[in-house]
Simulated assay, not measured.
Amino acid sequence: MSTPNTAVRTEAVGSALVITINRPQARNAVDAAVAHGIAAALDELDGNAELSAGVLTGTAGTFSAGMDLKAAARGEAPAVPGRGFAGIAEAETGKPLIAAVEGYALGGGFELALACDLVVAAAGARFALPEVKRGLIAGGGGVIRLPKRIPHHLAMELLLTGRTIDAERAGELGLVNRVVGDGEALPAALELAAEVAANAPLALAAVKEVVRLADGAPDAEAFAAQHARSRALRESADFAEGVRAFAEKRAPQWRGR
């Protein structure tokens, strides 16, 4: 069931929660209402056992133009304490997130996509971190995440020039999982979400947790974290069900425990 038509709408589609930034008059720029709306949507996603993945998108053919500078000038903070920019940049989400990008993903909009685990982009999508052109840095995760996602010198080129790239180039750089036709980003993201949702929810959460814990950690610490999560998974009812389903040549019935 959809929430009221506010700055951020949510709607369950199958086992995915579609999270839509709904400020078309401002090209879906992030103000305080959007930040808190996304934070609430992530809580909704993680708190509902029937949902397996989230899909973040924007309304009216635009993903997000980034921080709402007019709102910021009025003193609004486009962030949530403990969760960072847009309520997501520093959040630790338990379920996979997929960005469905149409149109512009500029500045903070690009950082929203970088905060997701997977990205589907329409052919007409455009990405940029132009903060240096305004005397700022991409402080919503851009300067931290981009050099981890693509080779150092290519990341620095985008960060230091503020250049805009298209979806094809983003795909070449490995920033986008799939490039689809204009208007097809959300359906394609939902297809990807359904593929993800076919897998064990505990295992999906463990993948995200281990990847997060291993980021920058020494190998010994990373493997220790992985061993602990793997041991817990082997003791889960879902693992037993996965083995039975494989032997019986049927789809598993996951229970998340």
Rank of each mutant, 00 (worst) to 15 (best):
A7D: 15
G14A: 14
T20W: 12
A29W: 00
V30H: 02
V34L: 06
H36M: 13
G37W: 05
I38W: 04
A40V: 10
A40S: 15
A41P: 10
L42Y: 10
E44H: 08
D46N: 15
G47T: 05
L51H: 06
G54E: 09
L56W: 06
L56G: 11
G58V: 09
G61H: 06
T62E: 10
F63L: 10
A65S: 12
M67W: 01
K70G: 12
A71K: 09
R74A: 14
P78D: 06
A86Y: 01
G87C: 05
I88V: 14
A89W: 02
A91M: 12
G94F: 00
V101H: 03
V101Y: 03
E102A: 13
G108T: 00
F110L: 08
A123V: 08
F127V: 05
P130H: 09
G135L: 08
A138M: 07
G139S: 14
G139W: 03
G142Q: 11
G142Y: 07
I144S: 14
R149A: 15
E157P: 00
R163S: 12
T164L: 05
I165F: 05
E168V: 13
G174N: 12
V176T: 07
V176C: 09
V180W: 11
A185S: 15
L186N: 11
E195I: 07
A197M: 09
A198S: 13
A200W: 03
L204Q: 11
R212K: 10
D215Y: 03
D219V: 08
R231C: 00
A232N: 04
A232S: 02
L233Y: 01
E235R: 07
D238N: 05
F239L: 13
E241H: 00
G242R: 02
E248P: 00
R250L: 04
A251C: 06
R255L: 06
R257A: 11
